[in-house]
């Protein structure tokens, strides 16, 4: 709504710390995380399992509160963030009792958009999401890749400027995943949204992102921020490009030190 005058930083996380009770006492999940996301940026967060990546996204989405530190969304730290950023998790969380189209319009429905109007907006994007002809199908009739695209459509139709994606491709097979990567980049170029992606897949992070944040093992801290200076638009051919390999090698080095002991 503010148009041109919006600040170039959409999300600013400062000194974020999170402690959680567990069976072994208080667990330090996040320890002083700083993060800045620019408008229209594609940013990835990568780190070993249990480093608090998902907790970080939960806090940014407003589902969870930090023990210390601030999150500013469009420069605002005070107001609740629930409902202001779109958040997609690894599980597609499609409602089995709703058809593809009914699942897709969920965000619009919650916002009180008229049913016909909401369906129209969803229908306009169905082709682009590879779901033509499946509008009235139930999720149980869809493949994993299609289900994930419906979840994506639902996330996009929430009509927020920022998308938080928590390992959205984690459950897909390698082939489907790389197709989804190319597709997501096309989509992102068209929609001009800001994307924060949590992943543990190095190829995925390099292929998709402008910048990659590498996190340490628990308690999670930002270990390195890596610029991915590869040309766009990117296609799958890039994966074998020497420049891609160089960035990937650097990222792998940063991560390797953080793998929990005794694990590859």
């Amino acid at each position: 709504m503010a148009g041109e005058s919006q600040p170039s930083t959409v999300i600013e996380v400062k000194g974020l710390t999170k402690q959680m009770p567990s069976t072994q006492g208080i667990l330090d999940v996040l320890d002083g995380v700083d993060l800045e996301v620019g408008r229209g940026e594609f940013l990835s967060i990568i780190g070993p399992s249990g480093c608090g990546k998902s907790t970080l996204l939960n806090i940014v989405a407003g589902l969870d509160v930090p023990s210390a530190g601030d999150v500013a969304l469009d420069g605002d730290t005070a107001n609740p963030r629930l409902g202001r950023v779109a958040y997609m998790q690894q599980k597609d969380l499609l409602m089995p009792w709703r058809s593809v189209l009914e699942n897709a319009v969920l965000g619009l429905e919650v916002a009180g958009v008229q049913r016909g109007e909401a369906r129209q907006r969803a229908q306009a994007l169905v082709g682009q999401f590879g779901l033509s002809g499946f509008e009235e199908a139930y999720p149980s009739a869809l493949s994993g890749g299609m289900r994930q695209r419906v979840a994506f459509l639902r996330t996009i139709l929430a009509e927020r400027d920022v998308l938080l994606l928590d390992e959205p491709f984690g459950a897909l097979d390698a082939l489907t995943r790389s197709q989804m990567h190319e597709w997501l980049l096309e989509l992102w170029a068209g929609f001009g949204k800001t994307i924060v992606l949590v992943t543990h897949d190095v190829d995925e992070a390099v292929f998709l992102s402008d910048r990659v944040y590498v996190m340490t093992a628990r308690p999670g801290k930002v270990k390195r921020v890596l610029d991915v200076d590869l040309p766009r638009p990117r296609t799958l051919d890039l994966v074998t490009d020497p420049r891609f390999t160089t960035v990937k090698a650097e990222l792998l080095r940063a991560i390797r030190d953080e793998a929990p002991r005794g694990q590859p």
Partner: peptide, 11 residues
């Protein structure tokens, strides 16, 4: 998780 998803949509 579905309930949490609904909350992120502002439900």
């Amino acid at each position: 998780d579905m309930v949490r998803m609904m909350r992120t949509l502002g439900a």
